[in-house]
Structure formats: structure tokens, C-alpha cells
Design a binder for these strands. Structure first.
Length: 941
DNA sequence: ATAGGGTTAG
């Protein structure tokens, strides 16, 4: 209740005319804020047709000897006031008109009141003041007020400080710098700046909005005495212009001077914390809320709910909500949207029941809160039904939310259903709904429908509609078409491309490998006076990354910094992915520092990307420490951590993480199970693999995908259950693709089952005749059985199919340089030195019992020759170079682009003992950590 | 309230 009266106090303003002590209250609920209504009102007010017939009849019979003034006073309803109005139109007495304005305001008819005010009758200070307050609270007709003001001022009319203060507030809303400066000048002449704090506060507000917060702060500093209004004003100025540090400093000073903080200042403080992810500061302000006695203030508490919810802290939101003695409708709406925003639809529905029990009737905002948020499409229909039962029709916002919820691949049928529903029920079909419909069709991958619907929009197409389609084309790799559509937008629609248009194109080009073209677009933007922003640069970065063009991505990042664009959390997440894919641990750590310094670490994407970067770069320890330190671990971060253990073949550790995840109440998704099954596959946990595969379907409702099946085939096959793997392929729910047969062939190679291998090989020759890996597996299989004729046969077919053998390389980072060792091509400049050390190592190893394993050499050569070839393996060269050049005790980290052979695996183990050095060896998606003669994978890979 | 950039998957 207290909040309700506070709201009323805020909205109701007094309007005093002839008798300054007489105050009227206006009911804001009666007044329609829409500006179209307002102009209609003016027209109606000025035309006699607007007066209802019954009133006109009443008018003729009403006693004409009454003065309008007395008559107006006696009016009990709006119709009677209008009747008097019709008469007053002919009489034109200033006092009558002012009284009429006053009565109209009393009935909430601001439109009529404005219409009369601007009729141009002579006005005094008092009428201006009352009127200005109205204008300020309803935000209407500001331009006309300023025009009037300037005119009257030029005629020599003097206004007092209160009017000036209000005119200044209008100047700041309309960004009318010139008038603001003029008023300030006049004030200085009159010495008013020193006297009236209402004017000075308005002046600070004006400078804060129109010029800069610096000047506002200067005006504040020069005030000889500051009252609560001035303190709160300068706080608002700094909060609005994003000067957070300054605002915090002022807030502390306010406590020190015992200045009273207004509730709207508290609300603004909390709003900034909501939108800028300032959870820590938000918590501290919560402390002040309690200390300053705002815990009974409903608006402040509502802002606290929103602040916690935007920062992902639903539980704290709930605590605030539960602690409130009084609640209003927006308290309920805020807590409901806290739950829906994070996808807790069930809790939100429970709250809906509770609010109804407490006697609150859900309004359209309540229903729309329920309809927005993640993963709501499962419950949307039920919510819609209840909404309609309660007598409310979905509005454009409701439909927009619904469409956004289903705008993902695979939900096209739901999207179409909503479209049909809108048409059948003749629901609002405004420009928001239309553009969201296009976007829904784009995001569900249904470009033809998007195009069809777009074409029906005719002249109503706005830049958002065009951009939706342009981005759809760019995303689908049809960047030329996107560019074509852009020119069409310019020519036919007469609409200039904006940053969004360009950024879509930038992504489009970068993601199909045309980095140069993407950079050209950025240059073109500059020429067209659209400043490329951080999104543009992140778009190229991400495009390059999607395309696997990691080196280019890094170049782009450097380029971006040279352009003076500062990276944000999206940039950093993408960059970390790139660094992880290149295993650039050292640079990754630098980015980690950058995140700490710039407060990006609290971002869920960034935190997850960091965990991923550390695991991919082979530093599982750092990944683990970081991961367990994340306060609210996002699902993706659990998935990364499990995958990390999978990469290292640490089955039990990974399963432990998975169990912790379940304990934490996090629902595993399809990706979680891909990670868990990889875990079982890489660690030979066949029994567990089967269990999880069943659990996934029965308990968590995750439909097995081709990735899951591929893991199963790989797991079974590698562990020697070739028949089971074969049966699995025959009975799996989808058609086996090349990855399935590839995994199967790989297993057949390991277990030397030629018969089954040849079956898989036949299919693969059809499915992916140009994948050299398959040929290599066959060569390896035949050579391990000394079937050299078959080896030659495979090599022949490679030549005839023009299959290129994949380049083999390993690399190691030493200081800031990356040293790459290629199997063929240019030798490393220090090769002599490396071989010298390698030979020395091998002879030491042989004394300790090392026997070279030449099974991976597929050339029909002598044993001595094979041994020589074995020594040339790129990972051996890189490891040895690390031993020579990397001093200290940090592990030697080597990355190889293809799988390592068992001999290199053995050699690495020997090195850890002989040189007392840890080695981390990465091969594609698997990582080996060697220590004290052992490997983390327990030799099962 | 509608459009552009972000983490996880062989």
C-alpha cells in the first residue's frame, strides 16, 4: 500500500490557477499516454462536434444566468464540464479558461487542458507553473511549451526560478542546448544559481544529459550549500551517464553528510547494477537498503528483486520477495520474471497460483513475463489458455515472446503453429510481430517462408525486417544474396544500411573464409559514416573461428586493437575459443588476466570459454581450479569439464564431476552425454558406457544423436567388442554416416580384423572417397599384416582418386614463438642440434630397456631403415627441442595435428624418467600427460 | 517489445 501511495504522489501533481492554495489531484489511470490520442483530443476539444448531442440539448435548457466560473465549480462529471466548455468557447474570459483547464485536469483530461492552454490567452506565472508540472509528468507537448516560453521571454516577461527550473528540465529532455545555456546565462546575471537549489538541480540535470556529467559535477562542486535534492540530482546525473565510480563516491559522501537518499535514487542505483552485471555492488546497496530503512519501500524492494534476477541470483530475488511485508503487482511480476528468465517455468507457475490466492489479479505484464524466457515453449500453450480464461487476450508483446521462444532450429512446426494461431484469432499483427515472425522463420532455418512473409509486408518493411532476412542469408552462407538484398533495401526501400546490416555481412564473409572481403565491408562502413563497433570485429573473429581459420582470427584481433576497439566479453569468449583450438596456453593465460582485470570473469560465457581453453591447451589442473571456483556453474562449463577429463582419459574423475553435477541439480543435456560417453570411450569403461546410454534416454529424455552413437561404436570397437559394435550399427535409430563407419574401421584396424574392416572400407569409399584418414587406416592394417600388395593397391587408388595425404606436423611454443615441425617440407633450422640430442636420448633409453616399436611404419623397408624413419616423427623432434630450449620445470607441451604412434608414446614415458620432466602431448581431441614414466591415459587410447 | 557478435559436441 505504501508503494501505491508513493506512486500516486509521484504521478499526481498539483495544478493551481487562480487560487494557489487549491489543489487538484489528477487520476493518471484515466489518462491515455499515447500521443496520437492527445492530438485527437485537441481536435475534438476545439470542434463543437465533439460535444455529445445530449449535452448540447442539456446546454440549451441550462440556466444561462450562471457565470461559467460558478457553473464549472458545480460540475460533477466530465460531461457537464464539456457542456460548460461549449459555452465558454464563446465568452473567452481568461479566468474562465484557467478554471476550465483546472477542471479538465481534475478529470484526467490532459489533452483538453493542453488544447485550451495553447489557445493563446494571456497567462501568468501561476498558470505556467501548474501547466509545466503537468507537461513534465506526462511528457507531452514539450516543444510547444518551449516555443511559448521563448516568445514570452522575448516580449520581456520575467519568469521566476521555479518556472525556469522546469523549462530547464524540458530542455534536457529535448536536448535543446541553446535554450539551456541561455537560461543558465540569465540565472548567473540574476545570481539565482547561488540561491535556489531547485534551479541548480535542474541545471545539473540539463548539463548531465545534454553536455557532460563533468560540467554537472562542476556546478555541484561550486554549490555553497547542498540540500537533499541537489545530492540526489547529482547522483542521478552520474548514474545516467555511466559514471559509476563517481556515483559510488557521492553515495558515500551522502552517508557522511547525512543527506537523505531518495527512493528513486536507490531504484536507479539498483537498475544500473541490474543492467551492468554489478552483483557485488548490488549486494552492498542491499545492505544500505536495510540500513537506511528502505526495506519497507516496495519500489526499492522490487528493484532489488530485478537486480538479483538479472545477475542470475534467483534465490536472493526470492529472499527479498519473501521478506517484503507489502507487495504490489509489480513485485509479483518481477519475481515471476526472475524465474522465467532462467527457465524455471514450474516455480513461476507456482507463484502465479500464490499471487491469485493473495488476491492479486495477473495483468498482461504477468502473463507476458510467464511467456518470456528460456525453454518456455513446452509450457506456452497451457499459459496461453489460462491467460485467455482470465479474460486477457495475448497482445503483441506476448506473441513476440512466443515467437522468440521457438526461434531455434528444430522448432519450426511450433513456430508455424503460433503463426496460425495469430491468424485464426485475428490477434495483433503489428510491425513487431511481423519482424519477429520473419526472424523466427530465419532462425528455424526456413528461409523460403521468411522471404514469402517478408514480401507480403509491402511498404511497411522497416530496417529491422530487412536486417533479419539479410542476417539469415549471411548465416546460411549465402552472403552474396545478402549483399544483393542490401542493395535492394537501399534502392527499393530507400533505407540506408545500419551497423546491424553491415555486421551481418561481415560475419557472412568471415564465416565462409573470405576474411579480406569482411575487412572490406568494415572499410565500406567507415566510408558510409557507420562506425564499425566491437560487434563488427567480434563478428569477423567469430566467423574466422567458425571457419577453422584460427590464425586469421588472431590477426583480426590484433587489427581490432590497433583500431582502438576495446574487447568485451563476447570478443573474449571467441578469442579464448581460438586460443584453445591452437593450444596457445600462454596467450590464453594473458587473456585470463585481462578478464580478471576487466571484470569479465563473472560472465558465464567467458568463464566457460576459459575452462575450455585450459582443457584444450592441456592444462587440466588450471581448468579444474577455475571451474570449481565458478559460483553458478553454467551447464556448458560442466560439459567442458567432463570433456576435459575425457580428453585426458580420466574416466573416474570425469564420472565424479558428472555425479557432482547431478547433485547440484543441474539437468544434463545432449552435449553432457556426448562428453560422458567420450569419457567411457576414452577410458575403456564399456559397462558404464552402456548404463549412461540407457540412462540418457530413460531418465533424461535425451534422444541419441549420431554423435552419441559414434561414441558407442568407438567405445565397443576399441575395447575389442567388434561384433557388438557391428550389431549396434545395425540397430541404431539412424542411418550410419561416415563418422560411424570411420570409428568402426579404426577399431577393426586396432584389432586387425580384415574381414569387417573391408566391409566398412567399402561403405567409406562411397561416402567420403576423399578422406585420406580412411586410406591411411587401410594401409596401416594391411602393412601390420605384411600384406604389401594390398598396401600398394590402396596407395594406387589414392593416386587415382587424387586424394591428398594429410600434412603431418607438431609444434611447440618456446617463449613467444611457435616452432612447427613438418613431416615433409622445410626442416627446422636447428634440426642438427635436435637430432644430436635425440640420438643421445635413444641410446640412453636403450640402456634402460627401450625397444623401438616400428609397427607404425608402413613402408616395406629393413628394420634399421624403419627405426630411422621412426626417429623423424615430428612429435619426437618437438619434444626434444623442448628439452633443449625450455629451461625450468614447466611441463613440455607439444601439439600434434594427427594421432600419435605408440612408439612416441613410449619414448615420452622414458623421457619423463631420464630427464625428470613432465610432458603434455596433445593429439587432436586427446591429450596425454606423462609423468614419472606413466601416462594419464593408462596406455589405453 | 522486433534485427548484428559469445562457451560446450568426432
Amino acid at each position: 500500500m505504501e508503494n501505491l501511495s508513493a506512486t500516486l504522489r509521484h504521478c499526481h501533481t498539483s495544478f493551481s490557477l487562480r487560487k494557489p492554495n487549491r489543489r487538484y489531484l489528477i487520476n493518471p489511470l484515466k489518462y491515455n499516454h499515447s500521443s496520437t490520442c492527445f492530438s485527437l483530443d485537441i481536435k475534438h476539444a476545439l470542434s463543437s462536434e465533439s460535444i455529445p448531442t445530449s449535452v448540447s440539448l442539456a446546454l440549451s435548457s441550462s440556466s444561462s444566468e450562471l457565470y461559467p466560473l460558478t457553473e464549472l465549480k458545480n460540475c460533477d462529471d466530465l460531461a457537464s464540464v464539456k457542456a460548460v466548455h461549449a459555452r465558454v468557447m464563446k465568452m473567452f474570459d481568461r479566468f474562465d479558461l484557467e478554471s476550465l483547464i483546472s477542471r479538465y485536469l481534475e478529470f484526467g483530461e490532459l489533452g483538453y487542458a493542453c488544447a485550451i492552454f495553447f489557445m493563446g490567452f494571456p497567462r501568468n506565472q501561476v498558470s505556467w507553473m501548474g501547466f509545466l508540472e503537468e507537461v513534465e509528468s506526462f511528457g507531452l507537448e514539450r516543444h510547444r511549451v518551449l516555443e511559448e516560453f521563448v516568445q514570452l521571454q522575448s516580449k520581456g516577461v520575467n519568469f521566476d526560478e521555479v518556472v525556469l527550473a522546469m523549462v530547464l528540465r524540458i530542455c534536457s529532455v529535448l536536448m535543446n542546448e541553446l535554450l539551456g545555456f541561455t537560461i543558465h546565462g540569465g540565472l548567473i546575471k540574476r545570481g539565482a544559481v547561488r540561491s535556489d537549489t531547485r534551479v541548480v538541480s535542474a541545471l545539473m540535470g540539463f548539463y548531465g544529459r545534454c553536455v557532460s556529467s563533468d560540467i554537472a559535477n562542476k556546478v555541484f562542486d561550486e554549490m555553497p550549500e547542498r540540500d537533499d535534492l541537489a545530492w540526489n540530482e547529482i547522483m542521478m546525473v552520474n548514474l545516467r551517464s555511466g559514471e559509476w565510480e563517481k556515483a559510488v563516491e557521492l553515495f558515500r559522501e551522502m552517508q557522511f553528510c547525512a543527506a537523505k537518499v531518495y527512493d528513486r535514487t536507490m531504484v536507479k542505483l539498483l537498475q544500473v547494477c541490474s543492467s551492468k552485471g554489478r552483483l557485488e555492488e548490488g549486494r552492498q546497496i542491499h545492505g544500505y537498503v536495510l540500513r537506511l530503512g528502505f526495506e519497507a519501500n516496495v519500489s526499492v524492494c522490487n528493484s532489488l528483486i530485478v537486480m538479483y534476477s538479472r545477475n542470475g541470483e534467483v534465490e536472493s530475488s526470492r529472499k527479498v520477495f519473501d521478506s517484503m511485508k507489502d507487495r504490489d503487482l509489480s513485485s509479483w511480476n518481477s519475481i515471476i520474471s526472475s524465474y522465467t528468465a532462467l527457465g524455471y517455468v514450474d516455480d513461476a507457475m507456482a507463484l502465479l497460483e500464490e499471487m491469485e490466492r493473495c488476491g492479486f489479479k495477473p495483468d498482461i505484464v504477468t502473463w507476458n513475463s510467464l511467456l518470456s524466457g528460456q525453454g518456455l515453449y513446452r509450457s506456452a500453450i497451457a499459459i496461453l489458455k489460462r491467460m485467455q480464461v482470465s479474460g486477457l487476450k495475448p497482445n503483441s508483446t506476448s506473441i513476440t515472446s512466443l515467437l522468440q521462444a521457438v526461434a531455434e532450429p528444430g522448432l519450426l512446426s511450433l513456430g508455424k503453429a503460433i503463426h496460425g494461431y495469430v491468424i485464426r484469432n485475428q490477434l495483433c499483427y503489428d510491425v513487431y510481430v511481423e519482424t519477429t515472425l520473419i526472424d523466427m522463420y530465419v532462425k528455424t532455418g526456413c528461409l523460403p517462408y521468411a522471404k514469402l512473409f517478408f514480401d507480403t509486408m509491402d511498404e511497411k518493411k522497416n530496417v529491422v525486417a530487412w536486417n533479419s532476412l539479410i542476417s539469415g542469408l549471411s548465416y546460411a552462407g549465402l552472403v552474396q544474396d545478402a549483399e544483393g538484398l542490401m542493395s535492394k533495401m537501399e534502392k527499393e526501400g530507400g533505407i540506408k544500411p545500419d551497423a546491424v546490416t553491415w555486421n551481418s555481412l561481415v560475419y557472412g564473409y568471415a564465416s565462409c573464409g573470405k576474411t579480406e572481403k569482411a575487412l572490406d565491408v568494415i572499410e565500406k562502413m567507415k566510408r558510409n559514416k557507420v562506425e564499425p563497433n566491437v560487434v563488427s570485429w567480434t563478428a569477423i573473429l567469430s566467423g574466422c573461428s567458425k571457419n577453422g581459420n584460427f590464425r586469421n582470427a588472431l590477426k583480426v584481433f590484433i587489427n581490432m586493437q590497433e583500431e582502438g576497439v576495446f574487447p568485451n566479453s563476447a570478443t573474449v569468449s571467441t578469442l579464448l575459443k581460438v586460443l584453445g583450438c591452437l593450444s596457445l596456453l600462454h596467450s590464453g593465460k594473458e587473456v585470463h588476466c585481462f578478464c580478471l582485470k576487466n571484470n569479465l570473469i563473472s560472465d558465464a560465457y567467458v568463464a566457460t570459454a576459459l575452462v575450455d581453453m585450459y582443457t584444450r591447451s592441456g592444462d587440466l589442473r588450471s581448468a579444474s581450479v577455475l571451474f570449481w571456483g565458478i559460483e553458478n556453474k553454467p551447464l556448458a562449463s560442466w560439459n567442458c569439464m567432463i570433456m576435459g577429463h575425457a580428453m585426458f582419459g580420466q574416466g573416474q574423475e570425469g564420472i565424479a564431476v558428472f555425479n557432482k553435477m547431478l547433485e547440484a541439480g543441474v539437468e544434463p543435456d545432449a552435449i553432457t552425454f556426448t562428453s560422458v560417453l567420450s569419457l567411457c570411450k576414452n577410458s575403456g569403461l564399456v559397462r558404464e558406457g552402456w548404463e549412461y546410454f540407457d540412462l540418457m534416454r530413460s531418465r533424461y529424455g535425451v534422444t541419441p544423436s549420431i554423435e552419441h552413437c559414434s561414441c558407442m561404436v568407438d567405445m565397443l570397437g576399441r575395447s575389442g567388442y567388434l561384433d557388438e559394435a557391428w550389431d549396434f550399427i545395425q540397430t541404431m535409430p539412424m542411418k550410419p554416416d561416415a563418422t560411424i563407419w570411420g570409428a568402426f574401421l579404426s577399431s577393426c584396424k586396432i584389432h586387425r580384423d580384415v574381414e569387417l574392416a573391408e566391409v566398412a572400407w567399402k561403405r567409406l569409399q562411397v561416402m567420403e572417397p576423399h578422406n585420406s584418414a580412411n586410406y591411411m587406416m587401410m594401409i596401416s592394417l594391411y602393412s601390420s599384416l605384411n600384406r604389401w600388395e594390398d598396401v600398394e593397391h590402396i596407395r594406387d587408388s589414392m593416386r587415382s582418386q587424387r586424394v591428398r595425404v594429410q600434412d603431418l606436423w607438431s609444434w611447440i611454443q618456446i617463449d613467444q614463438r611457435v616452432h612447427v615441425f613438418y613431416a615433409e617440407g622445410e626442416a627446422h633450422p636447428d634440426e642438427g642440434e635436435i637430432y644430436f640430442e635425440l640420438y643421445r636420448l635413444v641410446s640412453e633409453m636403450k640402456r634402460s630397456g627401450y625397444v623401438p616399436d616400428t609397427s607404425c611404419i608402413h613402408q616395406n623397408e629393413s628394420e634399421a631403415e624403419k627405426e630411422k624413419l621412426l626417429l623423424g616423427h615430428t612429435e619426437k623432434l618437438a619434444m626434444t627441442y623442448g628439452l633443449i630450449r625450455k629451461k625450468g620445470s614447466d611441463p613440455i607441451r607439444v601439439v600434434k595435428n594427427t594421432s600419435i604412434c605408440s612408439d612416441c608414446h613410449t619414448v615420452a614415458k622414458y623421457i619423463t624418467v631420464l630427464r625428470n620432466r613432465e610432458i603434455v602431448l596433445q593429439e587432436g581431441s586427446r591429450i596425454h600427460r606423462f609423468r614419472d614414466g606413466q601416462c594419464s591415459c593408462n596406455d589405453s587410447w
